[in-house]
Simulated assay, not measured.
Amino acid sequence: MSVDTFGEAPDAPAGRSGGSGRSVDAAVAAGEAVLAHRFGSTITLAEPEVLTGSGPATVVRARIASSPFGLPRTLVIKHYPAARPGLPDPFAQEAVSYQLFTALSAEDRMCPELLAHHGPERVLVIEDLGRAPTLEDKLRGSDARVAERSLLSWARSLGRMHATTAGREADFDALLRRLGGPVKQKKQTTAAPRELPDLLAELGVAMPAEVREFADHAWEQAPAGTYRAFSPVDLSPDNNLVTDSGVRFLDFERGQVRDALIDAAHLRVPFGSGADPQALPAGMCEAMIAVWRAEVSAIWPALADTDTLSVLLLDHQFALVCLRTWDCLAAGCEMVAALVTWWRDLAADATRAGEHRLAGYADDVAAALDSRFGPGLALPLYPAFR
C-alpha cells in the first residue's frame, strides 16, 4: 500500500507559497518571458498580488498592462523553485495536469485554462477565475442550502473530471515524459496494514480473521483498481472555487491518474485528508455519490448498479479510514473525534452492504476510541449546517 494512494504527501516540499518582493518580481518576470515566447510579442504585467497556498510555488495574480492580443484582463502565475532530487516534481505534475485539461472543451474543463508554460523557467500562466468563494467558504458560511448546492456541484465536477479523463493515462504519461518527469513515480509504502491491527488491539479491539481478510483485500484493491482517471489527489475544500459555471479545481501539484474510486471514497469520508474535517448532515454523502455516479456511469456502466458500486466503495472507504486511523494513532494527532465519526459511518455503510462482521468491528473500534479519548466524541457539523 502506498502512502500517497489516498492523498498523503510523503516528503512534501518544504515551505508555503507566498512571496517576498524578490520572488514576486521573479515570478512576474518569468510570466512575461513565457507569454512573450508563447505569443511572439512583449506582454507587460502590472500590479502583482500574492496568492497564498500550501505548495512550494510563488503564486501571483497580475494585471495585463499592455498586450496586442485579446488576453484576459488578469491572469495567475505559478513560479516554482528547483526540483528536489529523488522526489516527485510538483511543477511537472501540475503542468502536465493542466495540459491534459487544456486539450478538452471549455465545458469539460473542470479547472482554469493553461495559457502558457515553460519547463526550464518552471513557470505556469493560467486563467484567473477571479475572487470566487471556495467550497470551504460555503461550508463555513451560514446558508445551508447554498452549502448543499455547492457540495453537489463539487461532486458533479469531480465525476465530470473522471469521465472526461478516463482512458487518458497514456496521454498523461506522454506529457509527463516530455517534461522529464518519471512516468511511474516510486511509491513509498506505509506500515499501516501491518501496524494498525496492533494499535487497535492496544485499545482492546482484536481484528477477527474475517475482517483481516477484508482489510487485506481492501489494501490490495486501492492502488490497483480498474476505474482509472485523473485525480487532483488533494481534495481539500479550500482547493475548489465555487463559480457560476460550477465548482472548479485548483492546485494539481500532486495530480496523477489513479483509481477514481479512491476519490469517490472521499465522498463518504468527506475531506478526510484535510487538517480540519467536519461532518455533513445525514444523507448528504449518499446524495453526492449519486451525483458523481450520474456523471461516470456512461463511461463505466458497471457503476450504475447500486450493489456493485456499494461493494467497491466499501473497500476503498475501509482502507481510507484505516489509513487515517493509523496516521493519527501512530503520530498522536488530535483528530480522534473524526476517527470516531468515520468508524461509525463505516459501520452503517457496512451494515447496508450486508458486511455484518465488518460493521460490528467498526462499531467496536469507534466505541474503543471514544472510551479511551472521550467520552462523547463526534465531529461537529460544518457551520453552514448547524
Rank of each mutant, 00 (worst) to 15 (best):
V3L: 15
F6E: 05
G15F: 11
A26T: 10
A26W: 00
G31V: 05
A33C: 04
S41E: 11
T44M: 03
G53D: 06
P56V: 04
P56G: 01
I64D: 03
S66D: 15
F69H: 13
L71W: 15
V76Y: 07
P81C: 10
F91Q: 07
Q99C: 05
L104T: 03
R109M: 05
L115H: 02
H118A: 11
P120H: 12
V123W: 11
D128W: 03
L129G: 06
A147L: 10
L151M: 15
L152F: 05
E169M: 08
D173C: 11
V183M: 03
Q188S: 10
T189K: 08
P193V: 03
E202Q: 14
A209R: 15
Q221Y: 08
T226Y: 00
S231Q: 10
S231D: 14
D234M: 06
S245H: 13
R248S: 09
L250W: 12
Q256G: 07
H266P: 04
H266N: 04
V269L: 02
P281M: 05
V296Y: 03
P301T: 14
A302C: 04
L303P: 00
T308P: 00
S310Y: 04
L314H: 01
C322M: 15
T341P: 08
A347Q: 09
R352V: 12
A366Y: 00
R372A: 13
F373L: 11
G376L: 07
G376F: 05
